[in-house]
Each structure stands twice: as C-alpha cells, then as structure tokens.
Amino acid sequence: MKKVTMMDVAKEANVSKSTVSQYINKRYDYMSVETKKRIKEAIEKLGYQPNYIAKSLKQKKTSTIGVIVANILHSFSTQVIRAVEDYCHEHDFHVIVCNADDDPEKEKKYVEMLQAKQVDGLIVFPTGGNVELFQQMVEQNFPLVFVDRRIEGLDVPSILLDNKKAITLAVEHLLERNYKRIGIITPSLIRKITPRIERIQGYKDALEKHGLELNEQYIKSVDVPLMKDTVKEMLELPEPPDALLAGNDLALMEVLKLVKEEGLEVPSKLAIVGVDDVSFASLFNPSLTTIAQPAFEMGTDAAERLLNRIKGSPVEHSCVTYYEPVLRKRQSS
C-alpha cells in the first residue's frame, strides 16, 4: 500500500500542506473550526500517521524525557513517576522510565541509552555514583533534574523532602508518647544516599535537642535482606528500644515481617513509625504512624522544572527545594 503523506491529507481537506502541519503540531491560533474539522476528517479517512522521527530531526527535539529511578520498588518513586507522567502528558511529552536498581553501573547504561535515543532531558533519582558523568552533562548544558537525592558539588536543580525535619517530627511524637529508647533502621549508607544520611543526622540532632543519650546500638544501616535479623538483634539487647523508626518503606516492610514472625505486640512492646506513607498504613492492624512525603507535588515540580528548562528557561544553578513532611498519627505509636 502507498504510504499516506501530509500532502495527501492537504488535498483531501482542500488546504495547504503547511496548514496540515500546523494542525498536527496543535498550532490553531489562526485556524477556523471548519478547517480543523476538515483536516481531522481527512486524517481519519486516509489513516494518516505523522512521521514523528522526521519531525524530531527537523525540530532537533523528541518531546521525550527519561526518568531514572534508583529503585522502582519504593512507593515514593512510583508516585513521583505518576505525577511526572501526568504533567508530561498534559504538555505533549512522552516519558521513558528506567529502574537503576540501586546500581550505578546500570544507571550509567540507562543514561547513555536515553541520550542515544535523544531524549530532551532527564529526571534522575541518583544512585550516588556517576558523579563525573553528571558533571559532564551539566557542562554540556543538558537539561537535568534530581529528585529525592542530591550530589554535592553539582549544579543540578534538586527536589527533596526535608528529611531532618521528618525524623524530628517522628522522634518528638514518640517522646510525647513517653517512649525514651528510640531506635532507627535505614538501608546501607555506603554510597552516602542523601535521605539516609539526612535521616540519621536528624535522628541524632533530635535526641541531642531533647537531652537524650545517643546509643549507637540503636542506630543501624544495613542492606534490606539483613534488616530483619538486625532488628531482632536490637530487640535482644539488655535494654532494647521501645520504639523504632523505619527509615523508608522497604525498611518498614522488613520490620513488619519481624513483628509478625515474632508475634510482637505493637505498640505495647514496640512502637513503630515509618517514613513514607505506604498505601496500607491505615489498613494495617494496628494502623501505622507514618511520615508522609508530598510525592505528587514533588513529581509535578520536577517535571515542570525540566520542561521549562527544555523550552529555554534560564538554568537554576544550585537550586535545592525542600518539601515539608507531614506526620500521620495512627495506632502503632
């Protein structure tokens, strides 16, 4: 079959080829309702499919961005992705999502692949590696936004939760409920991931602020598969913690697995507060006290900043935006 061209649509609709091009690119400013209707009907009748590759080559833009998440299993990550996709859909941009699985090498391959596909910009939850690669992208003026994490020394707009305040809210809530031996568990700090570092520091600062002695045995940062055994060891101490902060949703899941396996009574034996307001928090028995992040707002902000940058807005060097956490008080604390 002969491929239908833009000129075929123009002849069928009795308009010029440039008018069809304007219609396809949604430039309707000086186009009558009748003209738009004729072009629409011609496209449907002929089955015309615009050549987006040719359009991209001509405009030197693909109207596509990449999103590289460090770990797509985090509820926060999926919520941010949804907000990014919603915003981009409204602005006629496509989104390619990649999961780095907390692996800097995998992250690097995805960056290179997405650049090869000529995406117009990237939203990245950086793994903590690839500093030189991102520095090179900054020097090349490539549109880039970081979410959830930042990399010291890189002038990249970054959108994060106020992690220190989040943990302070949790600690002060537990102190109000008369818990004094408060522990915290997070994933490993080996790659110095921003929220983990800041949450541990916020925990230490909150204890110091309220005159509580810091017990290093109550602070654990390990890989997720080791978390259950690590928490179990904490609870077997001569003076075990009477409350525990789960540093993210994956940590919370491991704590809850242990609670179930050991038959621990919550909160009488162990109070629990989780960072990330997981979807089942209000349904769990007892319902879970959590620190919520405004994930959709953060995702929308990231997408808006990136698209503005792609469209030529001035570069926001060293711009770090912190979002406010919200304490959701429930029955687990």
Rank of each mutant, 00 (worst) to 15 (best):
E90Y: 01
K117W: 04
V84A: 02
F134T: 14
E85Y: 00
K117R: 15
L133N: 02
Q136M: 12
Q115G: 05
I96G: 07
H91C: 10
F134S: 06
M113S: 12
H91W: 06
T127D: 09
M137P: 08
G128E: 04
P126Y: 15
E132W: 01
K117Y: 08
E105V: 06
H89V: 00
V111C: 11
D102C: 00
Q118N: 07
V111R: 05
M137R: 13
P104V: 03
G121N: 04
V111I: 14
M137H: 15
A116I: 03
V111Y: 13
V124F: 10
D102T: 00
V119N: 12
Q136V: 07
D92Y: 01
V95R: 13
E132N: 13
L133V: 02
Q140G: 04
I123V: 15
Q118V: 06
D103F: 08
E132C: 08
V138T: 08
L133A: 06
E85N: 12
I123L: 11
E112F: 02
V124Q: 03
Q136P: 13
Y110A: 08
E85M: 03
V97S: 04
F93C: 11
F125K: 02
P104I: 10
K108M: 14
H91P: 09
H94F: 01
L133W: 06
A116Y: 10
D92I: 00
I123E: 06
E132V: 12
D101H: 07
K117E: 02
K106E: 04
G128V: 01
C98P: 08
